Amino acid sequence: MTSNPRLIFKKCVGGGLPVVGEHIKFDNTPKIDLDNVPLKGGFLSKTLLLSPEPSMRERMRDPSLPSYTTAYNVGEIITGFGLVVVLRSEREGVKVGDYMYGITTWEAYTVQPYVEGRVDVTKYPPGTFDMDSLALQPVPNPNGMYPLSHYASILGTPGLTGYVGFQGIIQGKEGETIFVSSGASGVGNMVIQLAKSKGMKVIASAGSDIKVEYMRSLGADVPFNYKKESYDSVLAKNGPIHAFWDNVGAEALDAALAHARNYARFAICGTAATDNVPNEERYRLKNAHLIMKKCIKLYGFIVPDFLPQFMGQFLQEVPTMIGQGKLKSKELLVEGIENAAQAIVDMLNSGHDVIGKPVVIVAKE
């Protein structure tokens, strides 16, 4: 028997950040018989990488609260994005040695497809997206000229989010100005580079001087630390803006509304400024009336909205651009599944100076 450590969702999170051991718990007691565990027409995978994502925080809520995605089940293994390699297979089209990326259980070994921990989507309103439906897909080029960790950053959901939202909503043009909040994040990293590839002027914000320099290295024309310079003052000096990519909300969104041109395009991708704040303490917009007065196109979206239209394009263009040196990525590697819970919390804590998309290394091969 082989040890099969995993992360268990222990308790719903109200306001604030999840607490390791209270809301997410590492469990190293399970065992698995790799040679004889029944596959039941599926396949046995070994987890290599895990990708902490902001959407995981939303899934830690009370399931009675409506949202864009389904909630985790208390007592079940946490699911999220990961990269696995196939050890045994009874599934047609899936071969031993195949690398696959997508939603998987956060444990060392899994009989796929994972069914026992799936949420009951019938409990949720129509239009709620079942995150667990983002099934594992073959990695297009596992031997490409870039590390596998890129599949948790620029070739994974952060890069895909930035790409499809930029193509579907921002549709940037040469000579335009875009403001990107949380520009040093995995998603912001992609948006800055795509905007520069289109000839746009890029204003980008982050919460530390180290991150400001990182955004500058990506090509941002006006990177700034919002803790030292206000959103309003920077946009007043360097705007008005044609487009806004928002990962933050709150003051960033308010300032963008104030300094937007008529018919500006806003891609609302995240609300990091209020995600861990009790509802009664959340920032309230002062400039919402400008959405109508300036005819602003404000579009809240999630990745699946644009997958049918842009997934093929992403898989074709982005690896090529990486190979040509036109797109770059930085990952923060965290060794060991036992540190995955803390990696989730650290990823959600915007007050740190660490640069790079967090990637948990579960196994080398």
Rank of each mutant, 00 (worst) to 15 (best):
R6W: 09
L7C: 07
I8F: 10
I8Q: 08
K11N: 15
V13G: 04
G14M: 00
G15T: 14
G16I: 01
V19A: 12
I24P: 01
K25S: 14
I32F: 08
L34G: 12
G42C: 10
S45H: 09
T47C: 13
M56P: 04
R59D: 02
R59P: 02
P63C: 07
S67R: 09
L83V: 15
L83E: 05
V84D: 06
V85N: 00
L87P: 09
E90A: 04
G97Y: 07
Y99M: 00
Y101Q: 13
G102Q: 03
E107Y: 00
T110C: 13
Q112C: 15
P113D: 10
R118K: 09
P125T: 05
T128H: 03
A135P: 03
A135W: 14
Q137T: 13
P140H: 09
N143R: 06
N143G: 12
M145A: 15
P147Y: 11
Y151T: 12
A152L: 15
I154W: 04
T161Q: 02
F166T: 15
Q167P: 05
I170L: 15
E174F: 04
E174Y: 08
E176P: 15
E176R: 08
E176H: 11
I178G: 03
F179V: 06
V180P: 03
G183A: 03
G183R: 01
G188A: 12
V191W: 06
I192P: 04
Q193G: 08
A195F: 10
A195M: 10
K196Y: 10
G199Q: 10
V202M: 08
S205F: 06
S205Y: 08
E213C: 04
Y214M: 10
M215E: 01
R216M: 13
R216Q: 12
P223K: 01
K228W: 00
Y231Q: 01
D232C: 08
A236P: 04
K237R: 14
G239M: 06
G239Q: 01
A243V: 00
F244M: 14
F244R: 10
A250Y: 09
E251L: 12
A255M: 05
A256N: 06
N262K: 10
F266Q: 03
C269L: 02
G270R: 07
T271Y: 11
A272G: 05
A272Y: 03
D275I: 04
E281T: 00
K294W: 06
C295F: 05
L298T: 12
Y299Q: 14
G300D: 00
F301T: 09
Q309H: 10
Q313V: 09
L315G: 04
P319M: 08
P319F: 10
Q324D: 14
G325T: 12
A343H: 13
D353I: 13
V354E: 07
V354D: 10
I355E: 03
P358T: 03
V359N: 00
V360H: 01
I361R: 12
A363F: 02
E365Q: 13
